[in-house]
Computed example of a mutant assay.
Amino acid sequence: MRLIVTSWNINSVRLRIDQVRRFVETVRPDVLCLQETKCPDDRFPLKDIRAMGLPHVAFSGQKGYHGVAIASRLPFSATDVMRFCGKDDARHIAVTLGAEAGAAAGITLHDFYVPAGGDIPDPELNEKFAHKLQFLDEMRAWGRDARPAHGPAILVGDLNVAPLETDVWSHKQLLDVVSHTPVETQALETLRQESGWIDAMRRLRPEPERIYTWWSYRSPDWAAADKGRRLDHVWVSRDLDPALRSVEVFKEARGWERPSDHAPVTAVLEL
């Protein structure tokens, strides 16, 4: 069975519901994982999402900030929400896809939205950056203790870190810019490796290929400048590695009217 999973920081699901619909009609993912939905649970556009052929929906949101959601053509169970750093700020949700997804034991799918970290890469001067580092530390502890990758599992989301030199338009110029500082890239790669996750995109599209998923709103001509960063990720457990077929960035969506600054990332697995 072919399983198509998309991760997308939508930057307000209600504001960009038409873009979501357009993408789903074009790519037809089996599972759509959204971040930064910016929507309290009682205002989530559930009917619109279900009308797109994604009847099974789980979401965790709050007014104006953060928020994650998983919408699926396939049924799922065991919805779970984890809280990090003592904050109830809607940055994680997980579901377990059943045998319909193609794996007898089911597949656990984690959707994360890691804090951006503000503008100053100093935890003593910037509490947002301190929060980000603490969040990554707690993710590392979760990976070590809960061993989430020791079974069929997928982790997706806006992890807000571009870990490799070829994940940014200029490694040298961004070394002291939040999302590509050494303390962040080391933290993300350490938690991924210790937990046993495989970076699906780099597994199939290794360096030196440059891959970006985010382009700043501040750029007057983002496409021509192409000063991007790979902030959005798809990781898989080792037993799903043989099933990987492709991981693609749908860059076209960044050029749509009133777009998110992130493009959707879609992984295809043959199970």
Rank of each mutant, 00 (worst) to 15 (best):
S246E: 15
W8E: 07
A58I: 09
A253Q: 10
W214Y: 15
L109D: 11
L175D: 12
R91K: 13
R202K: 01
A149Y: 01
H110D: 13
P55T: 11
L74W: 12
G117D: 08
R140N: 03
P152H: 14
D241R: 14
I93C: 01
E25C: 08
A99D: 12
R254Q: 00
R140I: 00
A78H: 15
E207P: 10
D48L: 13
S60Y: 08
V57A: 11
L244W: 05
P121I: 13
V95S: 05
S237F: 09
V236M: 06
R210P: 00
D41V: 06
P115Y: 10
L136C: 02
A51R: 13
D199G: 08
V20Q: 06
E184F: 10
L175R: 15
L269Y: 09
D80N: 12
A130M: 01
H150I: 02
L125C: 02
E207V: 08
A187M: 10
K132S: 11
L46W: 01
R22Q: 13
A90L: 02
W256F: 10
V57T: 11
S72A: 13
A71D: 02
D42W: 11
A153Q: 10
A101G: 12
D80Y: 07
N160E: 10
M201P: 00
E124R: 08
L125I: 01
H262M: 05
I107H: 14
V20T: 11
S216I: 02
L188F: 15
Y212N: 03
K128F: 04
V234Y: 03
K172S: 14
P29Q: 09
P45V: 06
L231Q: 08
W214I: 01
G98L: 13
L32G: 01
T181Y: 11
P182R: 13
R2D: 12
R205C: 00
F135C: 07
I198K: 03
F112A: 04
T213Y: 02
A149H: 01
A223G: 00
S260W: 09
V178P: 03
V178H: 06
S72N: 08
L46I: 11
D241T: 03
R140A: 15
V57G: 11
K63F: 01
G98R: 14
P208S: 04
A99G: 08
P264W: 06
L97E: 13
W215V: 00
K227G: 00
L240N: 06
D122N: 15
W235S: 03
G255R: 12
P55E: 09
A51N: 14
W197G: 00
R21D: 04
I70H: 07
T181I: 11
A263I: 02
C33D: 10
H171I: 02
I107D: 14
H66A: 12
W214G: 02
Y65T: 04
E207T: 07
F59K: 11
V27Y: 04
I154P: 05
T213M: 02
A224D: 06
R50M: 14
V20M: 12
L174F: 06
K87Y: 09
L97W: 09
K47F: 07
W215M: 05
I10Q: 01
A187E: 13
A253M: 13
A71M: 08
V5T: 14
V95T: 04
P220E: 00
T108P: 06
V183Q: 15
V268F: 02
C85N: 15
D48Y: 04
P208G: 03
L125G: 15
L34Q: 07
